[in-house]
């Protein structure tokens, strides 16, 4: 990284250590891990604490994370990690110009986390998308329905065990094993 790049990276994320310190002080045991990489800060937190943490980040005058940029998820099935999912939040402070990523691990057998729509109504669509594509439940969401896929769709397409194509393609070498589907027209 050149000096100029480093300067920009620093300006982009003005040293977030005070943020981390404040969060640590307030949430102690709930904070599982803090990572710094390429000028970005990630806090891994227990999923039970997410609403309290988000409220703290938003309302603390020195933190002032008033913009919830994004809610999404990552499925770690292929990397054999437990718990399987991480719900990932990106917070941004418009007055303070700093950004923070919060991850909350969610297990496969009970993929539930509390909704942030109580703090930001704008979390509604992104949370519905995560529900739709990953099957993660947001407890307390006012309208947790599918948003991109059809209402009667089965499965959650962005999970790693969901195939990229709908059905296996038949070749001469796998003709015997391919599951044949009756298409109903011909």
């Amino acid at each position: 990284m050149s000096e100029q790049q480093a300067a920009v990276a620093e300006a982009t994320n003005p040293i977030p250590t005070p943020v981390v310190a404040k969060v640590r002080e307030q949430f102690g045991e709930q904070v599982l891990e803090v990572r710094e990489r390429l000028g970005e800060t990630t806090i891994v937190v227990r999923s039970e604490a997410i609403v309290a943490l988000a409220r703290f980040l938003r309302d603390h005058p020195d933190l002032a994370f008033n913009h919830l940029s994004d809610v999404t998820a990552v499925d770690y099935l292929n990397l054999n990690r437990e718990p399987r999912f991480d719900v990932v939040y990106h917070f941004y402070s418009i007055p303070k110009r700093h950004r923070l990523r919060v991850r909350a691990p969610v297990p496969e057998d009970d993929p539930t986390i509390a909704t942030l729509t109580v703090l930001w109504p704008g979390a509604s669509f992104p949370e519905r998308e995560v529900y739709d594509l990953f099957g993660i439940q947001f407890a307390g969401h006012p309208d947790l329905t599918r948003i991109l896929m059809p209402d009667d769709w089965v499965g959650h397409p962005l999970r790693k065990d969901y195939p990229i194509y709908g059905e296996e393609i038949e070749f001469s070498h796998n003709r015997e094993t391919v599951e044949r589907k009756t298409l109903g027209y011909g």
């Binding site: 990489r37 390429l38 970005e40 990630t42 940029s69 994004d70 990932v88 990106h90 950004r99 990523r101």
Partner: peptide, 19 residues
């Protein structure tokens, strides 16, 4: 690793989050 980069697209914050 993970990276988030946001730009000001004509419509607002266009962010790419790469894992």
């Amino acid at each position: 690793g993970e990276v988030y980069q946001a730009i000001e697209s004509p419509r607002g914050e266009l962010g790419f989050y790469l894992v």
